[in-house]
Design a protein around this nucleic acid. Structure first.
Length: 282
DNA sequence: ATTGGTTCCTGCTGGC
DNA sequence: TGCCAGCAGGAACCAA
């Protein structure tokens, strides 16, 4: 389930394979995902060189010559798998929707079993006004993100903090896993009203968000059912989850304190599983 | 305007 | 062992 760290891991895998290379063609193997693929995608990007690969929230931005940007969202199960010339190429999977090819023989497959992914081709000038991009909140790993900014973003939110963190308009890039983990490290209850998190609490939450995202990127993201790095390898951050998916277990701090009873609870908020430790989160 | 619930899709899991 | 209902989740959409 790609959140910011998984998208960042994918970006890092794509850079050496694609930046500086020129697309030769795209095999379009289905009509689209969340919405139809752009018409004549292959001819539109043919013979264009990849200038850079960036990220905004959970979106990959593959910037091409001629002010074009491939905007890609991995949805729930999307993967970008790279094969360079000489690699053993596996048979095409039924969920390989797009196969990008470059002049030097590199192949990138956009595979997405659950089809919640998205791809659009947009003018670089219009990127910031694109409907998928224009309402996104601040980047949590940007220089300007801190407790003060976070507090400003949530001071009028009457919903719980967990739902506020999942709302991409509040902060961009956080999904269910990292929302749970960040709230744990900030000692904040996921049920707490968002607007009550101001001052020191907001500082704690902002730095917990940054800390957990950075640690996850360092570990190559989290692989649960779906996520793979672009070389097919697994991410490792799932082994470091403090609370996510650990219902009934001891959280790291309760373990250190030799508590003898499981402390991690699971609840459902806004239709999503939330994991939290009732001993530390208030 | 904000918020919470539903829906999309498919693979995997757990219970029988 | 095999089957299938239910669950998982990001974000658009809708309704209150």
């Amino acid at each position: 389930m790609p959140e910011l760290p998984e998208v960042e891991t994918t970006r890092k895998g794509l850079i050496p394979a694609l930046v500086g290379e020129t697309f030769s063609k795209v095999d379009v193997r289905s009509s689209g995902l969340r919405f139809p693929f752009p018409r004549n995608l292959s001819s539109k990007i043919q013979n264009r060189r990849v200038i850079s690969i960036n990220r905004r929230a959970k979106y990959l931005l593959i910037c091409l010559e001629g002010d074009l940007v491939l905007l890609i969202h991995l949805g729930m199960s999307g993967r970008m798998r790279v094969f360079i010339k000489g690699d053993k190429i596996p048979p095409i999977d039924k969920h390989d929707h797009l196969i990008f090819r470059t002049l030097c023989g590199t192949e990138v497959r956009f595979n997405d079993a659950r089809r919640f992914g998205a791809l659009d081709l947009v003018s670089a000038k219009k990127l910031n006004t694109h409907p998928l991009i224009c309402d996104l909140g601040p980047e949590p790993l940007s220089e300007s993100f801190n407790g003060t900014l976070l507090a400003e973003r949530i001071i009028e939110k009457k919903t719980n903090i967990k739902a506020a963190l999942l709302d991409q308009k509040t902060i961009a890039g956080i999904g269910n896993i990292y929302a749970c983990e960040a709230l744990y490290y900030a000692n904040l209850s996921p049920r707490r009203a968002a607007y009550t998190i101001q001052g020191k609490r907001a500082d704690r939450l902002a730095s917990s968000i940054q800390g957990v995202l950075k640690a996850a990127i360092k570990a190559g993201g989290s692989s649960l059912r779906d996520f793979r790095q672009s070389d097919g390898g697994l991410g490792y951050f799932q082994h470091q989850f403090a609370v996510y998916g650990r219902e009934g277990e001891l959280c790291p701090r309760c373990k250190a304190a030799n508590h003898n009873q499981g402390c991690v609870n699971r609840t459902v908020q806004n239709g999503r599983s939330t994991f939290y430790c009732s001993c530390w989160q208030r």
